[in-house]
Structure formats: structure tokens, C-alpha cells
Design a protein around this nucleic acid. Structure first.
Length: 506
DNA sequence: TATTGGTTGCGGAA
DNA sequence: TTCCGCAACCAATA
């Protein structure tokens, strides 16, 4: 018997999922089974690419999807292991139990996915299998936005907003599938269960099981609804006013990992926000409002899709070139392992490692510190660390923000440097986040919490932590190196004969 | 070609 | 509390 496949990649949800809805319609029209499929590519299950927390979050999201398919739809998630091109090549063979006639999926704009999908597209054509894709990872289709902007991606948030703003009020989310009309499963003879962490090569020590954020559509929707209950908080949200020092509860929604894996539809979130804004005419506005945050995501997805070699300083045409330090391994390692001697930076990097999450402005602090602020290390290296450790690691957004923070693109006022001391003091003079993530410093008085090396030895002894022994001395003198680095950036700006974007036009 | 505005810096002066 | 220097940045718009 023939069957239809809906291939989940991102978009790990049943709500507002056009590929799923269309797959169901197609299977029902032909009276054939539907296989909800996920393909695990073992290539990525490696702790040097994807950290244990992030992989665990993925497995949790798959389990939730499987559970909901079983409980509500008498179906299940079929998980196959292998290189996706090989898996589909096998699946298209006429002797395969699925006898796939059509594949439905959500389009993915990342370079890796584009290459993979074009290979599978070619393969499908040779087997006369049709693939239909839908844009649902973002609210607006980057292809269309770039077209409407004359073939180039917009390079400022404002111009992006201008392109999509009138369309925003008209968006609608799709309902979840109707349980009484859900197609049956095809007969499967091969192993198709969700693997365990151990099977994928992770050990328990790679994962913090007691971290706060856990995967799945069910938790995603609950988290969103819980957040949206407080209308006043929702309509007065202004990102720069939220604190990077707050954790449990965080000062922001913490929905980013769910948006990354598609456990939550950005369109549904936007629709719910617009409803609440409509009922509360005095609300904050983009770019700082919650809708504004979603539009930043859309903007960065659009630029990332429309710019070649986006993740490379050398080859990305909108990226300014800097002479980052070349012997950077020890510096990057100290940064990643929370050994910089700056409590604010080390606390945030510890939060990243253990929780897989950091407030946006915390990310600014540590990214600025690694690049143009203090260590002058390449943003490409920092981006790789974030990509491995963040639950919400999202290629387009991660690269965009590193370009921004290093003043390589989008942001150019390179003399605005975050201080690892003054910046946190503004939000949290008592050092809550430092005390939480760096317990060895927890007894230091507020006065010294962001610069413990300045505490007299007597106080260090009383606090049970000798700086230089129990906690490192600062690896650089921020006041000094930040000034030197501003000069380096100024030289690089002066010496480039034209801005990167103008060079690209030549 | 000039003008405008830019999610989110800091430290010191008034 | 607000403004200024840092040093004159960029992309989009008119």
C-alpha cells in the first residue's frame, strides 16, 4: 500500500503546522496511511557540535510529539536513523514498506538544510515522488521579503519592518488536526523508536537533567499561555528594560528554545500577542516590544538566507574584516570555561553551560568581552561555542547577533563597549546572578562582587575565597584593553576602502 | 548628496 | 538627572 510522509525537522509541533495539515488532507483524499517521520542524523550527535543539554532538549521534544500523536491521534512518530539522503533513498525504493508517493515538509533556509533538501528533491524527482514544502518556521517567507526588497535582503531592522508591517495584522494560525480524521500509520518493520542519549553517544555527565528548560510542544504552549496571563507585563514589555541578571524567574519569556525547534509557532505567538495588544491600546512597540522581538527573528532569518557565506568573516560580503588575535585558543578556552576572573562574565558562561540559556543582554556582555571589548578573539569561534551550548542555538540568529556584537555588520558604534563591571551593577548591584552561579564568590560584599580582586586580603579570607587561588585574577585589564581595542577597530574601519556592503556591490 | 535615525555603553561634567 | 566625548559609524530615505 502507498503512503504519505510528513517529515519533521524543525517544526516539532502539531499546532499551526501547514505541512502536517496538507499531508493529512492528501492522505485522506487518497485513503492511504500517513507516516509522521523524524530522521536522526548521527553526524550531529556529537558533543563537539551539539552539547548534551541541547541534544536532550531535542529528544524531549521528539518524545512529546510522539506522545501527543499517540494519545490524541492514535498515530506515532516514526524515527529513522541515518544520513537523511540515504534514508530517503531507501524509502523511495519500490520494495520499501512505505511506498512513499508524496512528502510534505516545512522549508528550512539554513545552508546545511538547503543542500540536504535539494539533494533529496533530486532523488525524489528520479523516483517520481513529489515533495511539497511550506514556510512555517518564520511568519514571513524570506524569499518573498527579499523579492519585495528588489532582490537584496534589507540590512536594517527598520527597512525590514517596513516590508512586513502591513502584513502582520492579517496573519492567522492554523488549528491543530482534527482527531476524528487522522490517517492511519503505514506498517513498519524496521526499528523506529526515539533513541536514548546513551545510544547517541552522550553520557549522563554531558547533560544537566535538573536544568530549568525542557523540550516539547506541550511545555511550549503552557509556558506561552502562562506568560500571556499577565497582560500588563505583556503590553509594557520593553527589551532593554528587562534584566540580564534575573533567573528563575527570568525577566523575558524563555520561549526561544521552543521557537528554535518549532515546538512553538512564531505565528501563533504573534497572533496571541496582537489580540492582547488590541485589547490594550497603550502598548509598547517594535523594536522593543514582544512583537518587535519576533520581528528581529524574522529580520535576521531573512538576511541570513539572502547573504552568501553568512557564517564566515572572510567570505560574507556584509561582514567587516578585523585582525582578531591569532593565538586565541587559551583565551577562548578561559572564556568558555568561566575562568576570565570577571565574575559577571564567568557567571553568565556558567549559566550557559549548565542551563543552556542566557538573557539576550548577558549574551551581549560575553560576546562583546570575547570580541571587540576585551579578548579581541574572532566572533566565528564564539559563535561555535554558543551554537554548541545554547538550547535555542539557531544558526541565523546566532551568526547575526555575533556580527552585531563584534561591530562586523548591522551595528557600527564600536566605541560603545560593555563593561563587565559597570553594566551588571546597573541591573543588579547586589550580584544575585554571580552568587547563584559562582558559589565560591557568594560571600563577597556587594561592593566587591563584580571586582573581587579589589577586596582586601582580610575580606577575601573572611569570604573563604582567595583571588588568584580559589578564583582567578582578571585575565585582562578591561579599562586598558577596551581602549586599545577601540583603536584597533577604528583602524580597521579607516583602512577598509569601502564599507563591506558597497564592496559587495562592485 | 545630505540627512536621519539607530532595541540595549561608559564615565565624567554640569 | 541629563548631556557630552568617544569619533565621526552605517543603510535607507528624501
Amino acid at each position: 500500500m502507498e503512503s504519505v510522509v510528513v517529515w519533521f525537522r524543525k517544526g516539532l509541533r502539531l499546532h499551526d503546522n501547514p505541512a502536517l495539515i496538507k499531508a493529512i488532507e492528501h492522505a485522506n483524499a487518497k485513503s492511504i496511511p500517513l507516516a509522521p517521520l523524524f530522521v536522526i542524523d548521527p553526524r550531529f550527535a556529537h558533543s563537539s557540535f551539539v552539547g548534551g543539554n541541547r541534544y536532550h532538549f531535542l529528544l524531549e521534544s521528539l518524545s512529546d510529539l510522539d506522545r501527543n500523536l499517540k494519545n490524541k491521534y492514535q498515530s506515532k512518530l516514526i524515527v529513522l536513523k541515518g544520513n537523511p539522503v540515504q534514508v530517503f533513498s531507501d524509502m523511495f525504493q519500490s520494495n520499501h514498506p512505505f511506498k512513499v508517493v508524496k512528502v510534505f515538509l516545512e522549508s528550512d533556509t539554513e545552508p546545511y538544510a538547503l543542500k540536504r533538501d535539494s539533494e533529496i528533491q533530486k532523488l525524489a524527482e528520479s523516483f517520481f515522488v513529489e515533495i511539497e514544502s511550506f514556510c512555517s518556521h518564520t511568519i514571513f517567507n524570506p524569499i518573498q521579503t527579499i523579492e519585495e526588497n528588489g532582490g537584496k535582503p534589507p540590512l536594517t531592522y527598520k527597512s525590514f519592518e517596513g516590508l512586513v508591517y502591513s502584513k502582520l495584522r492579517k496573519i492567522k494560525a492554523l488549528p491543530s488536526p482534527d482527531p476524528s480524521h487522522f490517517p492511519s500509520l503505514p506498517v513498519i518493520s524496521v526499528s523506529h523508536e526515539i533513541p536514548t542519549l546513551e545510544e547517541m553517544g552522550y553520557s549522563d555527565s554531558d547533560v544537566n537533567f535538573s536544568r530549568a528548560l525542557h523540550g516539547g510542544e506541550t511545555i511550549a504552549l503552557e509556558t506561552m499561555e502562562e506568560y500571556l496571563k499577565d497582560h500588563k507585563k505583556v503590553v509594557s514589555f520593553e527589551k532593554p528594560q528587562t534584566s540580564p541578571a534575573e533567573w528563575l524567574p527570568a525577566s523575558t519569556t524563555c520561549l526561544s528554545p521552543y521557537l528554535k525547534f518549532g515546538c512553538l509557532s512564531p505565528r501563533l505567538f504573534a497572533v496571541r500577542l496582537l489580540e492582547i495588544e488590541k485589547a490594550n491600546p497603550k502598548h509598547s512597540k517594535p523594536p522593543v516590544s514582544l512583537i518587535g522581538q519576533l520581528l528581529w527573528r524574522e529580520f535576521f532569518y531573512t538576511v541570513a538566507f539572502g547573504t552568501p557565506n553568512y557564517d564566515s568573516m572572510e567570505l560574507n560580503p556584509i561582514c567587516r574584516k578585523f585582525s582578531w588575535v591569532s593565538d586565541d585558543e587559551e583565551l577562548i578556552s578561559k572564556w568558555e570555561l568561566a575562568q576570565t576572573g570577571y565574575p559577571w562574565i564567568d557567571a553568565l558562561m556558567t549559566q550557559l553551560k549548565t542551563e543552556g540559556w542566557m538573557h539576550h543582554l548577558g549574551r551581549h556582555s560575553v560576546a562583546c568581552f570575547l570580541t571587540r571589548g576585551d579578548l579581541y578573539c574572532s566572533w566565528e569561534k564564539g559563535a561555535k561555542v554558543f551554537d554548541r551550548l545554547l538550547l535555542d542555538a539557531d544558526w541565523s540568529l546566532n551568526i547575526s547577533n555575533w556580527l552585531w556584537l563584534s561591530a562586523s555588520a548591522f551595528f557600527h558604534q564600536y566605541f560603545r563597549v560593555y563593561s563587565p563591571i559597570a553594566f551588571p551593577k546597573k541591573y543588579d548591584p547586589s550580584g544575585k546572578l554571580v552568587r547563584k552561579f559562582l558559589p565560591q564568590l557568594s560571600k563577597f560584599p556587594d561592593k566587591f562582587i563584580y571586582e573581587p580582586w579589589k577586596a582586601p586580603l582580610k575580606i577575601q579570607k573572611e569570604c573563604g575565597c582567595i583571588i588568584g587561588k580559589d578564583y582567578p585574577l582578571p585575565i585582562v585589564d578591561h579599562a586598558l584593553v577596551s581602549k586599545q581595542n577601540i583603536s584597533k577597530h577604528k583602524l580597521a574601519y579607516d583602512n577598509s576602502d569601502a564599507p563591506p556592503s558597497k564592496k559587495a556591490k562592485k
